[in-house]
Design a protein around this nucleic acid. Sequence first.
DNA 1: GCAACGCTGTCAGCGTTTTGTAATTTGTTT
DNA 2: AAACAAATTACAAAACGCTGACAGCGTTGC
Lengths: 223, 223
Amino acid sequence: MRVLVIEDDVRLRADVSAALEAAGFVVDATGDGEEGLHLGENEVYAAAVLDLGLPGIDGLAILKRWRVAGKQMPVLVLTARGLWSERVEGIDAGADDYLPKPFRVEELVARLRAIIRRSVGHASSVVSVGETELDTRQMKVSVRGVPVALSPQEYRLVAYLMLNKGRVVPQQELAEHLQSVLFQRESNAVEVLIARVRRKLPNALIDTRRGFGYLVVDRDNSK
Amino acid sequence: MRVLVIEDDVRLRADVSAALEAAGFVVDATGDGEEGLHLGENEVYAAAVLDLGLPGIDGLAILKRWRVAGKQMPVLVLTARGLWSERVEGIDAGADDYLPKPFRVEELVARLRAIIRRSVGHASSVVSVGETELDTRQMKVSVRGVPVALSPQEYRLVAYLMLNKGRVVPQQELAEHLQSVLFQRESNAVEVLIARVRRKLPNALIDTRRGFGYLVVDRDNSK
DNA sequence: GCAACGCTGTCAGCGTTTTGTAATTTGTTT
DNA sequence: AAACAAATTACAAAACGCTGACAGCGTTGC
């Protein structure tokens, strides 16, 4: 996990870097605001520690420019004084947390961990098979980037199969997961559903294993 | 936006609740740790405010049990003055931020907003989707820079959806984050609200996922 | 105090979409 | 060829979401 530290005080920078490295982070540290700005814009970090009291350049300006540049990484801001207004300003500028000086490095580490933990967990939830893509967050299925309109049942079917790609799913199991009142009696509802889905999606997507169930082939190539 | 407040001091609890309600939140407040624990485990909140100095039960224990139960909502911990160790402990236990007493309620509100934003993946207080812009700090929604007059309920709806952009929000969840009375029974209040909002904002903003809920599409363009 | 107004939830009607069933066809296995 | 599984088609009932009208309620202004 790589983190960026921008802090002009040599001593403090060394302490912080040491603590972070001890905590298992890979640290890039600089005392120069310009350099820090540049690094944050062009490199990829899991998080950044930013001192507001930099000589020459305003720390908040750095933060804002990162955000404008589309950088999303969480930023922990270090404030010199306990100025309430400054803190709120920082948070509104896009800081994820701030820490008033003086502080204990253990606390900095704990806080940094906290904001990193927050920033992940928003991993994109997409599963793709061939040209078909499933986004569970948006509950959307698209082929070659073109969204496909699916009914609720159809979506559930596709989602379940794709999330279980590479495995043969028995009809019975499918029916059960479509949480309808249909899964008890003898019915061809699932078959009908499969047909409807195939009409809307690439036929090759869903494979029939006669006598066993259905299968979405997992020939996922990288990406 | 529904939040949970656990604080045994009656006066403080009242103040905090009032401030949060003034800020547009729907507040569940309790002074009883057990009840708070239970609420946090079983209800859905956008965030929680948790006092560590509770009589009877340890606040950190509550937090840990929430995390064990898989609850992800951001938690703002209130600590007695100057107990650093306590703070670090709290953060390691899964707190997202802490606020030392005494504090100004304005700061509590600002911090709570910050951790909520962070928890849904946005750093700044402004969220924009297409031509529509939401400023949670000013509680203002504007289209192409032109402010749109929304009723409180309408604002809450838009805010919640936009803060959760890119994710399908079930009607049920939506109702729970709006206001008390309506989320109990079978009602089409949410649908009515949606219609009213659509009349005031670009129709394309809110997408209906029939059978599942509503969605604000996250086709994030720069910014 | 009274009238006007805005907010919010309920309700009923409407049009559309969805969905299971049944009937029929296609395809595969033995 | 018979037997069976699966695919397809057509259909009608049910589910769902949208809308306009309306009533209760609290607030504001005169």
